Computed example of a mutant assay.
Amino acid sequence: MHASGSDIRRIGDLFDIDIDSAARCAKAFDRIDLPHQRECVSGNLPFMSAVMIDPWYALADPTRRRVFSRVAGGPCSVTEIARELPVSRPAVSQHLRVLLDAGLVDVRRQGRERLYRPRHDGLAGLRRELESYWAQTLATFKTLAEQTYQTDATAQEGTPSR
């Protein structure tokens, strides 16, 4: 399997690298014998499995949280993010890929750049989960407070007044 020019351009776009670097990556990938390389949906269209990453996992990495924080501040490119972090552009691209697969960010092309921005509904699932924990904690606290109040009230009824 040899990468075509469009494959090399896609690799370059995906990892925000120049065409020569993308070509080297494609050439190195051709040397790897992976079973899924031979699987095709039809013709030469390769089978790609859709991977959805757990948003909690995506945000567990401190560097990825910093990348997400920067994206949450407004649309930005890999280069802009890498300028603000002590990691390389390819590393930022990989972090953004995880955030993209977790449904936390979206990407759109603007000229030669790919601009990343937060998904409006990206944190909704996390927020619902946190709110359910908070609601459960408040309900438990209320029950405990009521039980303590009832115990105190019962104890005071049994004590003679002075």
Rank of each mutant, 00 (worst) to 15 (best):
A135I: 08
D13T: 02
P46W: 03
D61A: 07
G158M: 12
S4D: 06
R114Y: 00
Q136I: 04
R38W: 08
G122T: 05
G122V: 01
R65W: 04
I8W: 06
D54F: 01
R97N: 11
V51W: 00
D7K: 00
L85M: 02
F29M: 14
R9C: 01
S132F: 08
S42C: 09
G111I: 05
S42F: 09
F68Q: 04
H2L: 15
S77E: 01
E80F: 05
R127E: 15
H2E: 15
G158N: 11
A102G: 02
R24D: 12
A28P: 03
V98T: 07
L100C: 06
F47G: 00
Y133P: 01
R108K: 10
I11S: 05
L96W: 00
M52L: 14
A28W: 10
F141H: 09
A124M: 11
M48L: 12
S6R: 14
K27T: 12
R31D: 13
F15Y: 09
T137R: 11
L14W: 06
L59E: 03
C76T: 06
V71D: 02
A28I: 09
R70S: 09
T140P: 00
I19P: 02
N44T: 14
R112F: 04
C76M: 11
Y57C: 03
L34P: 02
R108H: 10
G74F: 06
D16K: 00
R117V: 06
S6P: 03
D54Q: 08
I53R: 05
G103N: 03
M52A: 13
P46C: 07
A153N: 08
F15V: 07
K27S: 12
A58K: 04
R117Y: 03
V98S: 03
D7T: 04
A155S: 12
I17P: 00
A72H: 04
P46E: 10
P35V: 06
R109L: 10
T79S: 13
S88C: 05
R10C: 08
R108V: 08
L85Y: 03
D16F: 04
P160I: 13
S132W: 01
A22W: 01
Q150L: 13
V87Q: 03
P35D: 07
R64E: 03
T140F: 07
T154Y: 12
E131C: 02
W134Q: 14
F47E: 12
A155L: 13
W56Y: 10
G74W: 04
V107Q: 02
R83F: 07
Y133F: 13
R112A: 09
L115T: 03
Q147C: 11
W134L: 15
D33I: 09
